[in-house]
Amino acid sequence: MTRIGLRVLSAIPTLFGVVVITFLLTRVLPGDPAVFFASNPSMSASDIAAVRENLGLDRPLYDQFLIYLGNLAQGNLGRSIATGQPVAAEFARRLPASAELTLLAFLLAVVVAVPLGLVAALRPGSLVDHAVRLIATLGVSMPTFVSGLLLIHVFYFRAGVLPEPIGRLDPFLFEPARVTGFLTIDALISGEGQVFRAALLQLLLPAVTMALFALAPLARMTRAAMIAALGSDFIRTARAAGLSRGRIVLIYALRNAMLPVVTTMGMVFSYMLGANVLVERVFSWPGIGAFAIDSIVNLDYAPLQGFVLVMAAIFIAVNLVVDIVTVLIDPRAED
């Protein structure tokens, strides 16, 4: 347990490093936000200078950084130049949308990939094994925006079984009372079956798109780890003791194989947060990924810094979870 405590503490300097780097990186981006913001032909140089002063951009860099740190400490991520809204409020609205999508996609990927990898490992070289390899190869080699558009074409445009890709909910439905920010869960809590169904259907295609992408590394790693575990000496011992096949595969081999798989899950999850940016665009998902792209295009510093910071925090949290799960699975990791 001390190991876990130390691990949490070690996240703090990492987070500070992220703050410094994102601050500096956004400052070296080309373009002058004041000019961009004041892009009105009637504006004079003095107007632009006024905007710059208003945004604090005329001050020295370290001053800007200290102000930024002070604001961060108060939970203030700044104000978006483009929307005029506080960034923190914007994130509070958008993060649940992204989280719901990513979590469902991740869950789908794990539920499909781990059994596939397991079956492939039990019969290497079999038809199932080749099928898994094919699915995995297709999953990684197709960019998410291509597979996303393909899915939309088939399931919305051709078959018409899934709703239009226009965000989280049909515009004619009202959002359920906000509890978690996850529309499906909030709809269940307030007992609105129709809203739940609609929200789930909207989620399905983007979630599958992201899951397809995550399938490959998970299935391949499960297969490789299972083959390694099944070939190890202690499996031979278990077989020689007459233990049943189910017990050998699930209790002895799979639990050992889960160690590298859990690490891969962490990496895949973090990666999926990045992939979000494209998938959210394709499905008009009002998440943080789409928000981040807009911020880059608009040279909007505050939301961009906020985005990188939030992502870094999630990334650190995911790694923390991976470490904790590893300790729970493997007694050796505790020392």
Partner: peptide, 19 residues
């Protein structure tokens, strides 16, 4: 190496007895 690294040794013996 012949023993399961992440299972308590008593449980491993118990698995055989139970089987």
């Amino acid at each position: 190496a012949a023993l399961n690294p992440i299972r308590a040794v008593g449980d491993q013996i118990a698995d055989v007895v139970a089987r």
